[in-house]
Design a protein around this nucleic acid. Sequence first.
DNA 1: AGTGTGCCGCTTTTT
DNA 2: GCGGCACACT
Length: 779
Amino acid sequence: MKANYLDELNERQREAVEHIKGPLMIVAGAGSGKTKVLTMRIAHLLRNGVDAFNILSLTFTNKAAREMKERVEKILGGSEARNLYIGTFHSVFARLLRAEAHRLGYPNDFTIYDSDDAKSVLRTIINEQNLDDKHYKPNLVYNRISAAKNSLMGPEEYQVDYGVQQEDMRANRPMVGKLYDMYAKRCFKNGAMDFDDLLYKMYILLKGFPEVLHKYQHKFKYIMIDEYQDTNPAQYEIIKLLGAAHENICVVGDDAQSIYSFRGATIENILQFEKDYDDAKVVKLEQNYRSTKSILNVANEVIGNNKGQIEKNLWTDNSEGEKIKLVRTMTDNEEGKFVAETIAEQRLRNHYANKDFAILYRTNAQSRSFEESLRKKAIPYRIFGGTSFYQRKEIKDFVAYLRITMNTQDEESLKRIINYPVRGIGKTTIEKVVVLANDHNITMWQVLERAREFGFKAGTLEAIENFVVMISSFHAMLGKHNAYDIALQVGKSTNLVKELFNDKTTEGLARYENIQELLNSIKEFTETPTEDGELLEKTLGTYLQQITLLTDADKGSEENSDVVCLMTIHAAKGLEFPVVFTVGLEESLFPSGMSINSREELEEERRLFYVAITRAKARLWLTYANSRYRFGQLVNNESSRFLEEMPEKYIDRSYAGGGSVRNSPGSGLWGNSSAGGGGNMFDKMQKKAPAQAASPRPMPKPAGTAGAASTHVPSPNFTPDDPALMEAGMEVEHQKFGFGTILQMEGAPNNRIANVVFPKGGGEKKIMLNYARLMIVKK
DNA sequence: AGTGTGCCGCTTTTT
DNA sequence: GCGGCACACT
C-alpha cells in the first residue's frame, strides 16, 4: 500500500476517509470522487488495524461491487482484499440466507425466483382462483406484492391494513391481499424466494432470531453503504439492525441522483440519517473532477428546478469546454443515423476510441435504431441491460434442470422441463399430477416418485419413471461433483445440447451458442478461485444462487473491449464517458408519460436527466426526434420540457442545422444527414402554448425535408378516422405511406383490413386498421 | 399429443 | 413490431 495515499485526496475527501469511528454520511455530488473515497476509506480502515473480515460494503449493482473490489485490490494487493465482504444487497443477503434459511423453514438450497418466475407463479394462482387475468394482471399484482415486501409488510398485515385495502378496493382489486398470501405460501412450498424476499426474509430473520442478529453484528463491525439515496425501507431497517451494536455506519449518497423510487426507494432515508444518529458526521464532497464547466453548469441549473434538496454547491476547476449540442431530427431512425455519423466523425476528429462514447436512453426499446445505424457503419457496440442472458428461453430451460436437481420442491422449474424436450408427459398427465399432489398434500415431485401407486397408463408411467430416474441421477451427483460436471451431464442426458446443435436455423444456432456460453460460464465459475470473505464452495447451489442475481451487464466477458456503450440512464448511474449522447428527449418519452402526473414523479425524471447529463466528461449531445415509432405506429412528440430548463449560454442549438458545418467539404457527413430543416428547425423549441395541447396533434411544418422521399410527412390536421367508415374507392392518408386509394375492404368487422394502393408510398399494401390508422381524404 | 397460427398486450426505469 | 400464450388443427 502506498504510504502517501492520503495525499491524493482533497480536504473534504480526506476528512471522510479519516473518520473511522461512529456514523458518517458522505453527501457526494456527481463526479466528486465517491468511489475513490470509499475504496481509500477501506484501505485506511485496514491500515488502522481493522480486520478485513469485519468490513461489509453494500452496493446496488454487481458492476459497482466489482469495481470497488478491483480498486481496493489495486491499493492493497490482492490477498487482503479477498477477505472483505463486498457485494450487492441482494447477493450478500442471499448468501447469508443460504446459511440461515432453515431457521425460517426454507431449505438452505432455496431457489431464487426472478421476476419472470414470480409472475408465472402468480399467473398460475390467479387462474386457479378463477380470476380474470385481464383484470388481475400478474405484473400489477406482482408490483403490489413487491411494494409491500419492500416496506416490510407481510401478507397478514397487508390484508388488514386499512390504507392498503382502501387502495385495492378503489382499484377494484379486492383480492390482491389474498393473492399475496397464496403467493407467499406457494413460494414457501416451492422452497423459493423472490428478489424482494431476499430483503424481507433477511429482516424477518434478524428480527426474529436475536442470536443470528448478534452473530452478524459482531461480524460486520464496519458497514459501508453506497448509493444510500436508493435504499428502500427494508434495506434501511436491515442496515439499522446490523449496525446497531457498533454504529460504525458509513453511508454515501446524493439526493440529486435518487432514481429508484419506483422500486420502493425513499429519499427520506438519506434525509433521516442525521436524526437517526445524533453524533453523525456529515461530509459534503462538492468538487467535481469529471465534467467541463459547461456540462456542470447546465446540470446544476436543471436540478435547481427540484424542491427540497440537501443544500450543496457542486463546482469544478475543469475548463469550460464545448457547449452542449442540441439536435433535432425528423424520425427516430434519423436520430440513430445522426448519432452513428457523429461518432464516426468524432472518432477521426478528436481521436476517440469507441469505448469513449455512450448512448443513453430512457427505455430499453429505444436501442433499436441505434443498433441498426451503428451496425450499418460497422461501429462496434454493446448493449448493457435489456433482456438478460439468463432470461432467454434456452438458458431458462437448462437452468430449470439445474434448479430441479438442487431443489425438487421447485414446481416452477419442474413444470418448465417435465416435458421438454418432449418425453410423453403431456398436459393431461401434468394436471393429474397437480391434483394428486394437492389431494395427498405432497409435492409434485413426490407424486412422480410414487407414480406407480397412482395408476397412470403404462406408457405414461414409463415416461415418468424415466424422468424421475434421470433427475435422481443428477441429484446423486450433488455431493461428489462440481457444478460444471453436473451441467455437462444434464446437457448429455437431456439431449438439449444435441437438439439445438441439429437446429440449423439462425435462431437455433444462436441458442446453441448461448448454451455453450452458459456451460463456459459454469466452467469459469468452478475454476475461478474464491474471492469473497467466506469460503464459497464451487457447488451447483452456489452457482445457481449467483446467476439469478446477475444481469447480462455482469456477464464477465471482455469488460474492457473497445465498443460504444448503449444503455438506459438507470444503468449508467455511477459511470462516466468522455462523450455522451442522451437521446429521445421528447415529452411522454423523457419525461416518461407515466410520470407526468405528480410533482414527485416529475422530479424523479428530472433527477434522471441530471444523472444523464453528469455522465459526460467533455462532450454532450442531446437529441430528439419529431416523430418515432411506438407500437409500430408513428407518433409525434413535442420536445422535452427539460430542454427548456437549460441555460442558453451553454447550449449550441445550431449544431445540426447550421450552415457552416453542413458546408464543410469532404466530410460527407452532413450532406446526407437527416437533420435537414435548416435554420428554423428549432423554432418550436422556445415555448409550448398550452392551447396546443387541446388541438389534435399539431405538427410543425418542416421546411425542405431531406428524408421526404422515403418518409411521408403527415398533414397538419391528420386525425385517424373510424375503421368502420372505410369503403372501397375512398382516398385516404397514411402517416407513413402518404396518400392512397382503397381498392378493397376485407376482414372481420372488428378487425377490418384495407387494401390500399399508395402511389408514393411503395404501391399496394394491406393495412390492418386496428393498428395503422387512416384518415379519409375524399369519399 | 404435438405442432402451428393468430391474437393480445405491451414499454418506464432493475436487483 | 414483437413475443408470449391460447386455441385449433393434424
